[in-house]
Each structure stands twice: as C-alpha cells, then as structure tokens.
Amino acid sequence: MMNKSDAAAVRARGLTVVRGGRTVLRDLDFSVHTGRVTGLLGPSGCGKSTLMRSVVGTQARVEGTLRVLGRPAGDSALRSRIGYVTQAPSVYDDLTVRQNLDYFAAVLTPGRAAREERREAVARVLDDVALTSHTDVLAGRLSGGQRSRVSLAVALLGTPELLVLDEPTVGLDPVLRRDLWDLFHRLAAERGTTLLVSSHVMDEAERCHHLILMREGGVLAEDTPEELRRSTGSETVEAAFLHLVDAADAREGTTRDGLPAPADAPRKDTR
C-alpha cells in the first residue's frame, strides 16, 4: 500500500501560514514518519497548533506543499483517517461520556448495521483512556484531565492511521501522563498508528521516537532525541534545545523579526 521510498505519513515542503497579517509558519520543511511517535516541541506561541491544524486541514491559507497519508492536507478522503485532539477538550459538556462517544462514533461509522461495531469501538477507547468507571457522568462534571481524556477517546474512535494530539498531557498528574505516553507507544507498536504529539514540556521529548523542535514559526531541528543530544553534546533534549536556540541567535545576529534590536546591535538602517 505504501510506497517504499516514502515512509513519511506527513511531508511538508515550504509550508507557510499567514494569519491576520502575521507569518505564523515560515517556509517549513519536515516529515512525520509512519508508525512512529513524533514530538513537536517548542515554547508556547511558536506555531505548534497552527502546524497541527494545517496537517489536519482546518487551517485556512496554507501555502507550500503539505502531503498527509499520500494526499494533499485537508482532502475529504482524509477525514476518517485522521484523529485530531485540540488543546482545549472539544466535547459536549451537557452529554455523558458515553453519549459523547456514541455520537462521534455514529458520525464516523453511521447506520444501524454498524451498531455492534460502534459499541465495541466505544468500549475499546474508554478502556484506552481509563475512563470505564465514568461512562455515565456528564462531561461538564469531570475534572480537566478527565475531560481531555474524553476528547482523546473521541479521536481514537475509528482507529485513525494518523493521530494529531495538541498538548494532550497538559494538566495531568505524573501517573496519568506516564499512562498516556505508554498508550501512545502501544498505539504505534500494536496498531501501526502514526502520532504527532505537541508539548512544551521538554522531558516528554525523551519519550518520542523523533522530534521536531520549533521556534518562532520555524523548524529549529528535526531528528531523534539521541542524535540531538549527541550532535549538541548535551545531557538532555532540553539542554540540546537551548543550545540550538543560542546557536541560531548567534547566527541570525540580532535582527530577529518582531523584536527590537538591542542597543549595541549594528543596525542595517532605514534611510
């Protein structure tokens, strides 16, 4: 099914997004490998969410080449093959956990004939996110972490080939965070799912197969955690990231967009 030379689930070339007159993503090149967990890391506001929205196909005014599962991003045939979890949990607060999942399952696999299939899918994802004991609680009554797990469960329905998760572990306690990362790895290993997971917590980077480090709308580096640590001579991915930021700053001089040049900077002046 997959072209041998192309093991990338997502491939971007010259990806640029302008939002409200501001260039949020500038000429990005990156790949997300099939069946692997790819971490998208960078400080808040660096464009992670915009990149994910572009991949999922909900971002307007995307320029450049962006291929997802062999099709242009946003292609209608991709809608049932991608699971997407936004940063804020997007579920119906006035429905119970089960009613939420039942509805989204009916949108994905509609019809009376698929009823049994849907029941199994709902039971499976409830188990995946460890919410089996909360099925009849209104989503609005759940804690923040529980609600984001319902949101994740919705994305797991229909066993998508590509899962795009925007900061799925924010606000979760360490045990749940570990369990979720175990789940991500299980999905990749057992179901061959490709995962693109964003985070601004650098210690989660160590748990990814592959990393895309972002800063100010650009890709700073793209590699495995081991290779990033090795090439920068750092102990941790966090140290590697800081090393790369400093190196980029030194290279660019002090003429970064949007920031006033410090007083001692040589100004390429306007006449």
């Binding site: 991608i82 936004t86 997007s90 989204f104 949108v107």
Partner: peptide, 10 residues
C-alpha cells in the same frame, strides 16, 4: 471546538 472537530470528521 466541537464544530471544528465535527467538520474535521466525515
């Protein structure tokens, strides 16, 4: 965000 989610589904 449920609208965005639904419109990203079939």
């Amino acid at each position: 965000g449920t609208l965005e989610r639904l419109l990203a589904m079939p």
